[in-house]
Amino acid sequence: MAWFKKTKEIKPEKKVKIPEGLWVKCDNCKEIIYKKEIEKNLQVCPKCNYHFRIAVAERINILADEGSFVELYADIATTNPLNFKDTIAYKDRLAENKKKSGINEAAVYGSAAINNRPVILAIMDFTFMGGSMGSVVGEKIARAAEKALEEKIPLITVSSSGGARMQEGMFSLMQMAKVSAAIAKLKEADVLYISIVADPTFGGVTASFAMLGDVIIAEPKSLIGFAGPRVIEQTIKQQLPENFQKAEFLLEHGMIDMVVERKDLKNTVYKLIEHFMPREEEKGM
């Protein structure tokens, strides 16, 4: 747990795609910006409002009440069933990613409070193997849903993923069915599920729990889709429309409820909880 309390000392910009140094070039508008300014702005570009990818620890700081997050089952690990080897062996790749990201897997979940309302919070980190979903991520999301169901408190997920994890083959694919079935149980029990979709979210994560939220929120300009833009371009051999697969595009096509800036996320989630699961009713239950 200890490292969560130390989050303020962690320099997440080392983990995300921001280069080191005092000045940072924005991925979106290419402006050179003083790094401290971006940090102060919750890793959002003050010039163009681009939301940089952030690590789990920062996400917790932004969404949860200070010190409220308690991680659960941090050490669930894969058994490496395929003994997969790409350019390096899968187990070495995992070790490398643990070191790089400071977390054990591409998702972290636990209990937390949002303005004193208890929630179950599950967060993905794109830094860890592209946020890919294998058995561990699937298990954590399923357990998060089950915990929310058991405690009758809202489930909040924050997705950021390239999709199913190739290195665990069909085990990874099946996680899509597993997490979706777990979410189905939440819905039957009328427990609120809010899905926050961050940049980028694709494939098996979009096509399972990320798109199943009772309310789906995306951060501005996040890329969200099923197939990756390059695959689509290669398949149809056409130029993709402007804004394609951006959060605003999904909003326009009715796929998400709202696009919310990082600074307003916590309060928006809080308001939703207050509307859908008012405290009085909770006491009555």
């Binding site: 069915a177 979706s180 979009t206 798109m211 889709g225 096509h253």
Partner: peptide, 26 residues
């Protein structure tokens, strides 16, 4: 696989698959 196309994305390929996974489970 599911079709990777512009229309498919516009009409919610991911949502359609996710909903099937969820609904068929029950």
């Amino acid at each position: 696989g599911a079709f990777p196309g512009i229309g498919a994305e516009e009409r919610g390929q991911a949502e359609a698959i996710a909903t099937n996974l969820m609904e068929v489970s029950k």
